[in-house]
């Protein structure tokens, strides 16, 4: 597991000093994936460099398996860094080495014997599904394959923490999905604590167990994905929800924007509300998905019933409902939050 305690990074001195990270507290347990999101300039890449200690934090601790790495002298830091595997955005492989030779690099640095290295590399290639590409050069590999080589290299020294710094940015959706699936698989098989830094909100839903929102160098919000998604006041939770364009309600009926506000929304809520109110409920837009076994999502529902009755019906099933204004593009708190978080 990895925990950051009061992590602060300041660049420059005196009047020109810029505080990029300001007292961050983050903890990722073994077997967990934490996504860190935030707009560009929020300090995401500095955070990444402080986690794998390519940059030393100005103050605060980076604790991996009980040891604070932030204050180690340079030589010991180099050894300690091996406990943290890093996956970079562009896989940053050596262009003149084959996939296998790239994966072998950390082992070679460590001075592992050629025989042991070969065995370990074969195992890693197998694990990321690239055994058939062992002797290919980076220019012969696709974006997803390059990233798999990068992942295998990050795992070469059996780290307990995996840091992914925008590892899926720039990949097409399908490749992103397969890389994310691989990361989750590896997390389970190898008991890794994973810090997944990204600006892509839809990837967060697929990869993470919990998420933190970084803003102006501070953690603005942090929690498990389910908590964030079922918390109506969470800006991050709202931003993680897909934005839907709904159909217009029939004349005389009112459109309600409904979000899952608890962990116990029954799957047949729409039917039940219809029955309770004695009118057919019109489904104008909806997206529902299961995150960690809990259903979350949002929907737009058209109803004729009086506002008070309808709101009560929604509340009965753990839903939060806001009547949509006549304005076709209402600036509800939810859409505002999403606009603020639409960075990609």
């Amino acid at each position: 597991m990895i925990s950051l305690k009061n992590l602060t990074k300041v660049y420059g001195h005196g009047d020109s000093a810029v505080t990029v990270l300001d007292g961050l507290d983050i903890e990722v347990a073994t077997g967990q994936i934490l996504a860190v999101v935030g707009p560009s300039g929020a300090g995401k890449s500095t955070l990444a460099q402080c986690i794998n200690l390519l940059e030393r934090p100005t103050s605060g601790q980076v604790i991996v398996n009980g040891e604070d790495l932030a204050r180690l002298p340079e030589r010991r830091l180099r050894v300690a860094r091996r406990r943290i595997g890093t996956i970079f955005q562009s896989a940053s492989l050596l262009s003149r080495r084959t996939a296998a030779q790239n994966i072998a690099l950390p082992l070679q640095y460590l001075g592992v014997t050629p025989a042991e290295t070969a065995a370990r590399v074969a195992e890693l290639l197998e694990r990321v599904g690239l055994s058939h590409r062992a002797n290919h050069y980076p220019f012969e590999l696709s974006g997803g394959q390059l990233q798999r080589v990068g992942i295998a290299r990050a795992l070469a020294l059996r780290p307990s923490v995996l840091l992914s710094d925008e590892a899926t940015s720039g990949l097409d959706p399908e490749t992103t999905r397969s890389v994310v699936a691989l990361l989750r698989q590896l997390r389970d098989d190898l008991d890794l604590a994973v810090v997944f830094i990204t600006h892509e909100m839809d990837t967060v839903l697929h990869v993470a167990d919990s998420a933190a929102r970084l803003e102006h160098g501070r953690i603005a919000e942090q929690g498990s994905l389910v908590d964030l998604l079922t918390d109506h006041d969470s800006i991050l939770g709202r931003a993680l929800q897909p934005q839907l364009s709904s159909a217009d309600p029939a004349a005389g009926s009112r459109a309600w924007h409904v979000t899952y506000d608890s962990r116990s929304v029954p799957a047949d809520w729409l039917q039940r509300i219809s029955t309770d109110l004695g009118e057919p409920a019109a489904l104008l837009a909806a997206t529902i998905q299961s995150i960690g076994g809990t259903s979350t999502g949002n929907a737009t529902v058209g109803l004729r019933s009086p506002e008070r009755l309808a709101a009560a019906a929604f509340a009965r099933y753990g839903l939060r409902a806001v009547p949509r204004a006549a304005d076709p593009h209402p600036s509800t708190p939810a859409t505002r939050a999403t606009e603020e978080l639409q960075w990609a």
């Binding site: 390519l54 890093t86 970079f88 562009s90 940053s92 070679q108 640095y109 460590l110 990068g150 290299r153």
Partner: peptide, 19 residues
């Protein structure tokens, strides 16, 4: 980023410069 990756892979300055 290649140098950064080599540093993250635990290379010494001399190893990083060479490889």
């Amino acid at each position: 980023s290649v140098t950064a990756a080599a540093r993250a892979s635990g290379g010494s300055p001399l190893q990083i410069i060479r490889t």
